[in-house]
Each structure stands twice: as structure tokens, then as C-alpha cells.
Design a protein around this nucleic acid. Sequence first.
DNA 1: GGTGAAATTAGGCTAAC
DNA 2: GTTAGCCTAATTTCACC
Lengths: 161, 161
Amino acid sequence: MDRLDKKILRLLQADSTLAVADVAKRVGLSTTPCWRRIQKLEEEGVIKRRVAILDPDKVNTRVTVFVSIRTNSHSTEWLKRFSEVVITFPEVIEFYRMSGDVDYLLRVVVPDIAAYDAFYKRLIEKIEIRDVSSAFAMERIKSTTELPLDYMVFDKETRDA
Amino acid sequence: MDRLDKKILRLLQADSTLAVADVAKRVGLSTTPCWRRIQKLEEEGVIKRRVAILDPDKVNTRVTVFVSIRTNSHSTEWLKRFSEVVITFPEVIEFYRMSGDVDYLLRVVVPDIAAYDAFYKRLIEKIEIRDVSSAFAMERIKSTTELPLDYMVFDKETRDA
DNA sequence: GGTGAAATTAGGCTAAC
DNA sequence: GTTAGCCTAATTTCACC
């Protein structure tokens, strides 16, 4: 990977509908090598997928809730089942195991607070959870799928190929 | 919007490289009306964009940090500048104004803890921030761009067209 | 609303240099 | 890396249900 790949990724992260010829032009390459580079980036898994991004308002998922969960005194068994159950909820957009105070953090999207309550009830119906705290987002100031490319490593081989 | 639109959105949220003819087949439609529906969904802004999703590992942004910020005693002036500054950092992937205990929540991606420290220094160089607390993700259990479509409202008009 | 056919054009992909 | 061309598939338009 080099600077041209980086430029290509920057463009496709912002808009994957760009034609190869357009990408090539903006990157300062002709279409064939640009096409080959994109193919390679896909083969290597640098580009994982291309997806459509929907407007949360338009599909009635205006409200984002961050759910913090503490699980100190649970069994390994429980932890396994916990993850499995949580993953199945489509409202759970992100789910991390954390260090520090909170053990797990969820980002959940729902239409409104009532729907969150319903989601929450469905969740604790499936697994007992001891310590949960929910924080509601009032305003989405920034939300992007574009990763920063400033940390990319340029080498013969991809960092962990 | 109806059930067919929902099916189309479900497919394109997962993979936007699908040919219109493929989408049509899976949805049980012929290509022309399927194509028209997709066009309409784009015009209406239900589909906001199509983007390439990169592998965080491959672009060296393995580490996710959630940054909680409390700003109780700051001026309106400061709040405005705060938002403007934070947005400019490409490491900040998500940025919400919250209700409750924490005032702002950031999701930041960086290569490692050292890079987070550097990011943090660059941030507080640009704006003074009083109460910051950082929580590191140990494991990404789920992370998706697919919004749940179960809450979609089917009407003559889009809910808030 | 829907189907199916056909024409046009854009763009992915290949080949040859 | 380039230029040129093939050829699939997207995008229209059509007639019709």
C-alpha cells in the first residue's frame, strides 16, 4: 500500500459509487492500474464491503442510546450467552467489551424512549443483567463510517497480511 | 414505502454491489420497478450514500476509545467552539451530545494507546476541556452500519418527508 | 402500481503495447 | 504505466397488463 492506495481509499470511503475512471482521474492514474489497485485492496480485505447508508430518521431510528453494563460477578457461561443474545438484537449497532469501570458498552438505535424501554424489556427477558445504565443521545453532532487514514503503514507487505 | 422497499433496503444495507437485477430477483420484482424504487429511495434520501467499509486493522486503527466529557460550567461560546474543533479530528468517528451525567460522548479510533495519548494532547491543545474520561474497548463484539428496519413506517408519505 | 422487451450508454474488465 | 476495445449491466423508453 502506498499514497495512491490511500487516496483511492479516501475517495471510496466517502462515495463508493464513483466510477473507476473517476477515481483514476482524481488520483492521477489511468483507469487500468487504478482498477487493479482497487481489486487488490478488495482481495486483501482492506476494503471489506460496500454498503448503502440509510437515513436513521427515514427508517424511524432517530434515538441513539448508549448502554453501559457491569458484569463483575458473572460466570464465564453467562458471559458467553450474554454476547450471543445481545448480538441477535438488530437494534444493537455496536457492542464492545471494555476495560475499566464499565464491562460492556452497547450502542442501540430505536425510534423513541418508549421503544427503548420495550427493547430493554425484551433484552432482560432473555438474559438476566445486573447493572445496566442507559444514556440517551440528544444530538448527533458527527457520525461517519470513514476511518482516519493518517495512521496507514506503507510497506512491502500489509502490516498484518 | 412498503414491504418491498424494506426488502430492498435490507439487501443494499448489507451489500450495495448487488446488481439491480439481483435485487429484483430476490425481492420478487422485475428489474424496471425495482430500479425505480431504488431511485426513489435515493431521491427521498432514505438511502443517503453508498460507501466502502474498510478493515480497521488494515488501516491501523485497531483501538476504539470512548471519551466522556462533562462541560457543566462552560459558556455557549465555548460549546460552539468545542463542537467545531472536535469535528475536525478524523479520529473522531462519532460525536454525540448526551443527556444525563455525561455531556458529550466521542468514539475515537487510533492505532494504539500511545496514539490516543497523542490525539488527546492535540485535542486539549486546541480547546481547554475540564472533565474528560476515556474508556478503551478491549474487543469489538459487534459493529455494523445496518439499521434495524423493523420500525419502518409504511404510509402514503414518508414519515417526515 | 406491475411486466417484459428493446435501445442506449456508461463503465467494468481485458488485451496489447 | 498507457490506450483501445469488448461486453456486461445500468439506465431509459416503450407497449401492455
